[in-house]
Design a protein around this nucleic acid. Structure first.
Lengths: 162, 162
DNA sequence: CTTGTTTTATGATTTAAGTCATAAAACGCA
DNA sequence: TGCGTTTTATGACTTAAATCATAAAACAAG
């Protein structure tokens, strides 16, 4: 309903990977419900957030009685699968510059980045970009500097614009 | 309807990434339909295959008139999203041994690996494992050897069993 | 059976990203 | 207003996986 939630994992040595970030009017956590699986990740509030929790039975009832909702859910899952497919290919084969840029451009299209006179403000910390792309902070910082030098994005007092 | 299909991408320098592999009774390629997006990947027959192509309009009609099909589609997308989430976390933070093992164990659960007296036969080439995990063939070969030495899987005349 | 291709295999070398160390700037808050 | 924390930043060094080279075994096709 409001705020910002990240879905994440930690690997064996405590390194974080962010599966996705969700904002107002978005939903998360459905897939395991349909599979009777355990949640493969955690949900963490990045800022104060209000989240509506729907019991599985109510959710299933909603779907049963309301085909239009099913379609919306399908569209939503399709969107998330699309993002994951694109990022998986990026993360496994492309170099840092490509990965960071892809994430940023995806963010412009699907996260709530605001546009002002400098362009779109990329509302992620370097650490978050790293955790979303599988890179380390230092690498992200250096990569963003390189991208700025190449003129594909701007850094205006430490904030990234595209 | 039969055969084996891989969904893949090639990066800028021709390196392949396999998004997924599909067999009899499975479906693929739906997400972009719901998003009116271009296909972000290609489909390639790995062996002789027979594929049923359903026009978008027919498919949508099927969903509209048949809520039970919607639920099946949701379950299917949820399954694929689940796989991608798990593999994304693996690929970005875990080391080769972990990645390869995770893929193999997922394959046992969801691809059509057959069990015989030696255990489950992992019906992938080293190259395919590499393209699915973002590793190079040589790394996969060495990793599998290490895993064999550790006793977590068997290599019987070049075939991998788990 | 022969021949060309794919798959598995192994050793040597390179390199890009990770790691480690350190610090300044910015932010949050009591 | 001062103090602890987070974020951005940079340089030096290390390392794990990629790359390169080479080859044997297995397989496929004629």
């Amino acid at each position: 309903m409001s705020g910002e939630i990240k879905i994440n994992n930690y690997n064996d040595d405590g390194r974080e990977f962010i599966q996705g970030i969700f904002y107002k009017d978005q939903s998360f956590g459905e897939p395991p419900l349909f599979l009777n699986q355990k949640y493969p990740a955690s949900a963490v509030a990045v800022e104060e957030a209000l989240v509506l929790c729907l019991p599985k039975s109510d959710f299933m009832k909603l779907l049963d009685e309301n085909p239009a909702v099913s379609i919306r859910i399908i569209e939503n899952l399709a969107q998330r699968l699309y993002y994951k497919s694109v990022m998986a290919a990026e993360m496994s084969t492309q170099e840092p510059e490509h990965r960071v840029l892809k994430l940023i451009d995806h963010g412009i299209a699907y996260f709530n980045f605001k546009k002002d006179e400098n362009g779109y403000l990329i509302n992620f910390t370097r650490q978050q970009i790293g955790d979303l792309t599988g890179l380390r902070v230092e690498t992200v910082i250096r990569t963003i500097k390189t991208l700025e030098k190449k003129g594909v994005l701007k850094i205006i007092n430490r904030k990234v614009y595209r």
